[in-house]
Design a protein around this nucleic acid. Structure first.
Lengths: 208, 208
DNA sequence: GGATGTGAATGTCTTCACAGCT
DNA sequence: AGCTGTGAAGACATTCACATCC
């Protein structure tokens, strides 16, 4: 299989969202031009992205919204729910754990962990904060696929090592730290400070 | 001035963080190879990135940690503090507002807004949640440079239009929506669902 | 007619490799 | 010797443009 760039995958996620919006308005078909307009890209880009996986459109017609929804869901692996755990029940972890939007998109939060005794046992929306020591066992029992790391930077590498040892193969890291993961484990970072610094750069350089 | 890619700016932010860590350990100099190792890139990449802005190193020696810190701070526009406002005092907004790390890096949160009467007047760490109606005036009075949008997707475009009208030229959007901003305004998105879907893709495709 | 799918052309970013300082 | 700075080469991503098909 061809190598797919991260930016292409990001765009597919966006197209998926636009398709859901279009479906909600009852649209039957959608053109590459319309997807491009919403995504701030070009129609050629949209067609190239989709052509990496197949030929889903009808010439002269565009794409069937329902069909393309199904295809992109399948490409992105969203045909079955994923099991997610949140490590760190601070403000950020609690915000993420309570995001009902995730469930709607097939990411089921199965557990929340924290090391702070004061937080353990608290419950948010059906989830009880579990102690650190229960982590390894629970990750396996719940067949957790994706771990969200929302702990302080100093603790992040230790956490990721443990979740990887417990069989988790995908990690979304919110800690401002560059983590090491073994081959076969996928890591993505959300680094708010980095984004702010990017905005700072744009401000002083007058770039749009 | 040359066009600098977003990925180059991201890497500069990372180098800055590594330099701060190195400075904390008392290191005097650092090589491109060492920065590359920490950042998961190559030494040639590091040198190219830095060479876009000048020649900061000494051959055979590497870079002076203190000097390079100063240069990168200057490049990124971090020599003066930026004024930040958070719009949306839900769980995510509250988590972001209380991130003390931002202040340390020169991003001063000057105001938090919400439309919900139940939240207005609550105070978090010296900040009082202000009502929606006070937003336009306060953004100008506080000379806010950067707005963080942490409201539901449906409300996000309205919010960004208002902050832009109030003179804000940089926006960090956490809402899962693609926002339109006029030329001259920089927008960055943090889209957690997108990241999760990217991990899902990696899981089903066995990519590391 | 109208929009897709795709080789070819272009543009951008990364890596190579080596001359040039220290 | 060691490490930077940088043209040149290579890899990768985007855009063009048009034949193809509904």
């Amino acid at each position: 299989m061809k190598k797919i760039s991260e930016s292409a995958v990001r765009r597919l996620s966006l197209y998926l969202r636009f398709l859901q919006e279009a479906a909600a308005t009852g649209a039957e078909t959608i053109s590459s031009g319309e997807l491009a307009r919403r995504g701030g890209t070009t129609s050629a880009q949209v067609r190239k992205d989709l052509s990496l996986f197949g030929s889903f459109g009808k010439r002269g017609m565009g794409y069937s919204v329902r069909e393309l929804l199904r295809e992109i869901r399948s490409i992105l692996g969203l045909t079955r729910p994923w099991h997610v755990a949140v490590v760190g029940a601070g403000r950020l972890g609690s915000a993420l754990s309570s995001f009902r939007d995730f469930e709607a998109r097939g990411f089921d939060i199965r557990a929340v962990f924290d090391a702070d005794p004061a937080k353990i046992g608290q419950s948010w929306g059906g989830l009880t904060v579990l102690p650190d020591e229960a982590m390894d066992r629970t990750l396996r029992e719940q067949n957790v696929d994706i771990a969200i790391v929302a702990v302080p930077a100093e603790a992040a590498q230790g956490v990721v090592d443990r979740v990887v040892a417990a069989g988790v193969r995908a990690v979304l890291n919110f800690a401002p730290a560059r983590l090491r993961v073994p081959r076969g484990v996928t890591l993505r970072n959300v680094d708010v400070t980095l984004e702010l610094e990017g905005l700072s750069f744009a401000l002083v350089n007058g770039k749009a």
